Amino acid sequence: MTEHARDIAAAVDALRAGQLVGLPTETVYGLAADARNPDAVAKIFAAKGRPANHPLIVHLASAEQLDDWAREIPEAARILAAAFWPGPLTLILKRQRGVPDAVTGGQDTVGLRVPAHPVAHAVLSAFGGGLAAPSANRFGRISPTTAAHVREELGSSVAMVLDGGECEVGIESTIVDLSRGVPVVLRPGRVSVDEMSRALGAPVFAADALDSSAPRASGTLASHYAPTTPVRLLDVPALLAETVAAAQAGRRIGVLSRTLIDDAPAHGSVWLQLPNDPVGYAHGLYRDLRRLDQCGAEVLLVEAPPRSIEWQAVNDRLRRAAADATAAGEGLPKA
């Protein structure tokens, strides 16, 4: 048996024993537990410090398991699964009888997806059932995109962490609610509204903040994906002015930009630059936020991305990461 096969087997044994495993997916690393075992699922909430009514996403080996977990499955769900699974898309559906309340947060719906990572697929195939696997970090903090991030965040609360390299996508899956008759995106991600609309030949709608009937879903709280250091989103002139003022005052700040600013002051600040395209930016976002969060800065300044639809998922994550600073009056720049 190869080392890889031994690691997979050990992970499956740990999951069957009710333990937690750090699991790589194409989006972010998940904190996996047997979704049919309420005691194991409870360990996820304890390790993350996650509210008990916050639902989890169940990961499956293939779309053939859909009927084991969901009922009243609309044709739209079958079409989207065929088009985007394995991949970064979560479907919210009416749950089957027997799906634990611990997974659904007590709701009559369940989130399901088939991840597109060879390690996750190997574990799920060998395990044979569904794995509840939210991001493997403390609740509300930056999601992990490497195995080292998981170990830093959760330490000994995880039986083992499978190393699948750096996550390809870098942000969490798109979540689309199909439990109420029309498809509604509750969390944007790599799979866009336009792509889903084309696959269905019908409109897919964006969530309405005032829609009180929408199911609760992972990663949709106002403050989420946040470093411990306050985050502010600024346009380039404001960002440059802040860095100049910080340098003059001897303050240490972290800066995450898309634009190369040649005359930016180097003293007192740590600069990281991400690609000026939404796919490349998303891939490195959590990695670089985590780096800046560890640099000893008193605030992290992020160049606000464009407001175009292509940047919707990135803007969603940054808006939630900066929510606490926004609530204190440090909000987004004027459009």
Rank of each mutant, 00 (worst) to 15 (best):
R319V: 06
E242W: 02
V236S: 01
P144A: 09
A321D: 06
I142Y: 00
V119A: 12
D235P: 04
D177I: 06
D211V: 07
D13S: 14
A241C: 11
A102S: 11
A9T: 11
V270I: 03
R320Y: 10
D177P: 07
E152C: 14
G329R: 12
P215L: 03
Y29W: 09
M160L: 15
P278L: 02
V314Y: 05
A327N: 13
G181D: 14
T2A: 10
L239K: 07
V185H: 09
A11K: 15
G268A: 11
P275D: 01
L56V: 05
Q65G: 02
P227L: 04
A77I: 06
H224P: 01
I261T: 02
R16F: 05
G254W: 00
D324I: 14
V158H: 04
E64Y: 13
P74M: 09
F45H: 00
A46Y: 07
G165A: 09
P88M: 02
T229H: 06
S179W: 08
T220I: 07
G22R: 03
P144W: 08
H59Y: 15
A328C: 15
S308D: 10
V191G: 10
A245E: 11
P115T: 04
A133H: 14
L178P: 00
L318I: 10
K48V: 09
L80D: 06
T220M: 04
T326A: 13
L234S: 05
V114E: 01
E26G: 02
L272E: 05
S179H: 10
W85Q: 03
A11R: 15
G128W: 02
L60Q: 09
V302L: 15
N315W: 12
V12M: 08
V204E: 06
V169L: 12
V119P: 07
D163I: 06
D177N: 08
A199T: 04
A63N: 09
T259C: 07
T109Y: 00
A226N: 09
G155E: 12
A222M: 12
I261G: 01
E26S: 05
I175P: 00
T146G: 11
C167G: 13
A266F: 03
L260S: 11
G155D: 13
V110Y: 00
H224R: 04
G165N: 11
V119M: 13
Q107H: 01
Q248V: 08
V110G: 03
W311A: 03
A247W: 02
V41D: 04
S62Y: 12
Q107F: 00
V279E: 03
V231W: 05
Q19A: 12
S213V: 08
A83S: 14
L154K: 00
G170M: 08
A116G: 12
E242L: 03
L272R: 05
N276Y: 02
